[in-house]
Write a protein that binds this DNA or RNA. Structure first.
Lengths: 135, 135
DNA sequence: TTCATAATTGCAATATTGTTGCATTTAGTT
DNA sequence: AACTAAATGCAACAATATTGCAATTATGAA
């Protein structure tokens, strides 16, 4: 199963990559490199970083950067319009103020932002509030 | 002048802080810690990090995090609704695909995002495209 | 203006995060 | 089964960030 996902994205299905992908599939929220390290029994940190880079480049996962937070990553939408590390999703990144978890939440469509003098080509939205589980 | 800004934000106006603030005032786009280091002649890196932390906490500057980019920082809006490191601005973070610079661009109001099951309390928008200078 | 004091600085040491080069191993193909 | 490009694992290293502590300094009060 993981194997298919990797091959679809032009990545060799090695045991290490399958295990890392497994970690993502086991979480419904975004995770950090540290989360992955903890989930893997034994591992080589360098290989992990390289795996993450390959996953991002090939559209398996995308990064989520929030001020004051560690970098997190989450699986791409199946329809992720990625081009060599460039991702385009139709979801909002939402962080819960209670549990701190970050979720990718689907939306009908992203807002249409217009900025005088600037040509806007892509928009990403980050929201904060209270998540389903914490209400 | 820098002195007043710092005092307004309940920070002691030390020479170091004034110099760092100066760097922000001299740039119309967001800058990284490295940019500041290069702009300062001699400096102590630890003090710089602590200065940055203090500036963020007291609402002088805010962080801008973008996937795959170094962390950047920019001056807060004068009306920045900050509370111990929590910032609330009425602008969009825009990165130019040509020059890579990041700008804080004022908007009338941020979009109203609704997510089923989630209580949205704050929204931040990051956009990409072509900036004024590069068109 | 001087003093007292809490805040800030600067240094040493250390932690965290991420990268590069290279020899070895392995997945996917022929 | 064999070949080959890709991936791994190790060592070394670079960049980024933090903590504790002694010395210094900005600021408000005397």
């Amino acid at each position: 199963m993981n194997t298919e996902i990797l091959k679809e994205k032009q990545l060799r299905a090695t045991p290490f990559r399958k295990k890392v992908l497994e970690v993502f599939l086991n979480n419904e929220h975004a995770i950090s490199a540290q989360d992955i390290e903890e989930a893997l029994g034994k591992f080589d940190r360098i290989t992990l970083y390289r795996t993450i880079k390959a996953f991002i480049k090939n559209g398996v996962i995308h990064e989520i950067a929030m001020p004051g937070e560690v970098k997190r990553m989450a699986l791409c939408d199946p329809v992720c319009n990625h081009d060599d590390g460039l991702h385009e999703h139709n979801h909002v990144h939402f962080q819960c103020r209670k549990c701190d978890e970050v979720y990718c939440v689907e939306v009908e469509e992203l807002p249409d932002i217009r900025l005088k003098g600037f040509k806007v080509e892509e928009v990403e939205v980050q929201a904060k509030g209270i998540c389903q589980n914490c209400r």
